[in-house]
Computed example of a mutant assay.
Amino acid sequence: MVMAPRGPRLTLLLPLILLAATLAQLSEGASYRQFVRQHVNHPKTGAPNDRIYCNLLMQRRGLTRPRCKPTNTFIHAPTSQLRNICGRGGRPVSGNLRDSIRSFSVTTCRVLPGSQPGRCRYRAATGVTRVRVACVRQLPVHLEPTYLP
């Protein structure tokens, strides 16, 4: 004879399910906020040159500790335009990846050899290109590598 779950077990299970759902939603929001922190700089922060721009932004955005992030791309567009890639402004590629229909001004920062955490130095490449993002709940949460010369 199979016994049905008793009340106390069910009452413990329901809060755990609700907690898991809430944490999943919070992490998706955190992923979008992380995407913005790591990849959006609009309007572009002023700097004497693009090398200084990369050194400054990578440090300001917390991308130089605990290690020097090897490569990072900043997109110089409003967040509304980037969110639109997950809707009408993007084309599906595969899974949750979407290519932007329009091109964006970007700066890609690449770490220089010999850089140390806290003293990371970068070279910069600027250009105008389409971008590929991963979307979760109509929000960009990941930027695929952007290749500039």
Rank of each mutant, 00 (worst) to 15 (best):
M1G: 15
V2L: 15
A4W: 14
P15S: 09
I17K: 05
L18M: 06
L18H: 11
A24T: 15
Q25G: 13
L26F: 10
S27Q: 12
S27N: 14
S31N: 11
R33A: 04
Q34I: 09
H39N: 11
H39I: 14
P48G: 13
N49G: 11
D50C: 07
C54T: 00
C54H: 01
L57Q: 08
Q59E: 14
Q59M: 10
R61F: 02
G62P: 07
G62N: 02
P66T: 08
R67T: 15
C68V: 10
K69S: 05
T71A: 15
T71Y: 10
I75D: 07
A77R: 00
P78D: 11
S80Y: 09
Q81W: 13
Q81Y: 09
L82C: 08
I85K: 06
R91I: 11
V93W: 03
V93T: 03
G95N: 12
N96F: 05
D99W: 06
S100T: 04
S100K: 00
S100C: 00
S103R: 10
V106A: 06
V106F: 07
T108V: 15
V111N: 04
P113Q: 15
P113E: 12
Q116C: 09
R123P: 09
R123H: 10
T126K: 06
V128W: 04
T129G: 03
V133G: 07
C135T: 03
C135S: 01
V136E: 14
R137V: 06
V141I: 02
L143M: 05
T146D: 01
Y147C: 13
Y147P: 10
P149Q: 12
